[in-house]
Write a protein that binds this DNA or RNA. Structure first.
Lengths: 395, 395
DNA sequence: TCGATTTGTAGCGTTCTGCAACGTATCACG
DNA sequence: CGTGATACGTTGCAGAACGCTACAAATCGA
């Protein structure tokens, strides 16, 4: 319940302009005036300040077939980047992501076994140290975002529980901050996936969406509610994988029975296909190519269970869009009609009528973009205060 | 993505001050300066404007045992009211509710059978016409809020489907607006209940909560996510009653199988108790007094099913508080431990660890307050623009 | 009764945005 | 190739809102 003053107006307007440029990639000054409702002169002043701060650049207008004086194109500075870190069971991935959403570089550092927190931090810090020359020469680093496959406490980046990594109450953000000197934020990987899809993928411009991702280690999810990422009170929201969908005794990774994650698994799809391993695309191709009744039966079984969870979420949240990623996208690809009608049969007509099901659009860069977005959030909220740190160019 | 200007600053600050006074009932000017972070002189100007507009009144400070000059107490004007309307199966209830949350008057108009939309509108309009003399003499009416037991489209107040009333695609808000001349907003009753409990009941100051209400005709719910009422894309969010909780074939009011509303019913509790009818309090007393094993078994069955739905919602939303109203509160009263441990067994430790279960605090005025809150919302967002209409005093 | 403390009040300065007038770049048309 | 229409950038000025400072007022405690 804060009052606002002049500073806040300026801050807010800078934030709005930078966000618009960030999301659209580039926009002319006249587009910005229309989008914000602000005056031409105000936009000119705001853009000038953002240019001064090195956050955006203006370039000559490209020839548009329009009458009138051409408006300069404002785009995000390519120098402003965030670092993205994603620890997984078999690797730690580190990336440099630009404010424009471009992934400048991605390093996947494979590990023999699931890394401990210390190992993950050391790997990330070492890779970042290796990049440091490049980072300090070419980039302004805003900070580090970490996408963690598990429950992460929002305010301090403590990893409460990451079952597949075997982490419990690990102060990941604090450790990585100490090791690198950059400010670090961490969040659940699927929540970040939801954010990435919302801004740069299938959910552009949508205010209410659910994102579900099916991976080797289970099902995670995230939500955008009323235009804002819904984290819940501690950042644990979005655990659709542990929704109960049947009375069976199958157990999921958290020990819960009859849940979505217990019934709908990548492993069983691979088994029935007779595959040892496959990435998401290969799995989808194999499922589409298969004519085996056993495969079909397993797909149908999983679709029907998935539908129960989706319908429940749709009834509760009344979203505009459901985005499916990983092997859940493969299930959608194989039989979208079955999934749709199964969801319809478990949901309320009104809520079902306003929702669309679609596959995720961002591929392997999803978590890099999502994690970077987390790091950019502070800058976007207040472009006037670029957090200091190594590699951060003083203004 | 709107830019803001000076007008917006003023509007926002007026809104913040009015909201603070609205929610707390009354506050001294010095409390307002601390809460908003604004300057003393600014608060003085803002309060003066609100007084000018007839929205708040200042009164002499009561003697506090504090050093220093006493600060005048700012409280909401008792003249500013909203009308609340709640159509039900057996009655239409109309109320006058003050901006301070006080229910000045409540009229319950019983009907022989479930009213049609036209009947409900006519009843409400007639009762309001009867009050008009009083309204115009003593009050400034902001508008009408309607709490509907069914799905209501947020933006225009169209009742998509109210199964218990038998309404389908009825332009309720439009009709009532035409009949009374007041601006009308409508929303789902349970969503409004959630809002009322959040501001004036068990959820004061809480940003993430789930509210579930058990009534004669089923189970409805609402959510507050990140401090905002979550309505979904069309206002249909919060339908927890149709979450699937078992593989049974019991059917709910929407024709869905094995849902919360199919398994957990007030009717069955009354039956096993041998009661013909009872209000929420009587039912709770009867359940607490009963020693019958059959009653106990039915209560346990219902608690276990309720727990599945609650756990699912908790996993997905990570709320700070779950508020139970109606006969669901009775189930909580009878065996809170069983409910808690059942919820725990179906939910993730981290999410369960941050949540509290509690009974609704607002009794029979719940929907009056919630519906009025809906009508006040516009005024609170922009205190400078009191919508005109009959009874609205021109400034 | 006096000092300390807290808060209201009044006037001034700062900051930011909007507005209006003017300059400029492009397109369409002859 | 020149002219008018159109759209946009630029500049200087005005208005609005808030913070700050100094002073007045009201209360408590000694």
């Amino acid at each position: 319940m804060q009052g606002s003053s002049h500073d806040d107006v300026r801050r807010h307007n800078l934030s709005v302009v930078l966000r618009l440029v960030h999301r659209s990639g580039a926009a002319s000054r006249s587009q910005l005036t229309r989008a914000t409702g602000l005056n031409r002169s105000t936009i000119a002043a705001l853009v000038a300040e953002l240019v001064d701060r090195g956050l955006v650049v203006e370039r000559e207008p490209s020839s548009t077939n329009q009458v009138g004086r051409p408006s300069p194109i404002v785009s995000v500075s390519e120098q402003v980047v965030a670092l993205a870190v994603n620890p997984e069971i078999d690797a730690v991935t580190i990336g440099i992501v630009g404010l424009d959403g471009q992934v400048h570089r991605r390093v996947r550092y494979p590990t023999d076994q699931s890394p401990s927190v210390l190992e993950a931090v050391n790997i990330a810090a070492a890779v970042i140290d290796g990049m440091r020359g490049e980072l300090e020469a070419k980039f302004k680093v805003v900070g580090i975002g970490v996408a963690v496959p598990g429950l992460v406490r929002a305010h301090d980046g403590l990893v409460r529980h990451a079952p597949h990594l075997g982490w419990l109450d690990e102060p990941l953000a604090e450790m990585l901050e100490a090791a690198t000197g950059y400010p670090v934020l961490a969040a659940n990987d699927a929540s970040l996936g939801a954010m990435a899809e919302r801004f740069f993928g299938a959910g552009k411009g949508i205010t209410d969406l659910i994102y579900l991702n099916g991976g080797a280690s289970g099902i995670g999810g995230g939500m955008i509610v009323g235009g804002a990422a819904a984290g819940g009170i501690a950042g644990y929201a979005g655990e659709f994988g542990h929704t109960r969908v049947s009375d069976s005794n199958r157990v999921d990774s958290a020990g819960l029975r009859g849940t979505l994650e217990a019934e709908v698994t990548r492993r069983e799809l691979l088994e029935v296909l007779g595959l040892a391993g496959a990435d998401a695309d290969e799995l989808e191709q194999a499922l589409l190519a298969s004519t085996s009744p056993a495969v079909r039966a397993e797909v149908n079984r999983q679709i029907d269970h998935l539908a129960v969870a989706l319908a429940g979420a749709i009834n509760i949240l009344n979203p505009q869009l459901v985005v499916l990623g990983g092997f859940l996208a493969a299930l959608l690809a194989v039989d979208a009609d079955r999934l749709r009608s199964a969801v319809a049969s478990h949901s309320l007509g009104a809520a079902f009528g306003t929702v669309r099901l679609s596959a995720a659009e961002l591929g392997s860069n999803l978590l890099m973009i999502g994690a970077a977005e987390l790091a950019f959030e502070g800058l976007l909220d207040d472009p006037a205060e670029l957090p200091a740190g190594p590699g951060a160019v003083s203004t």
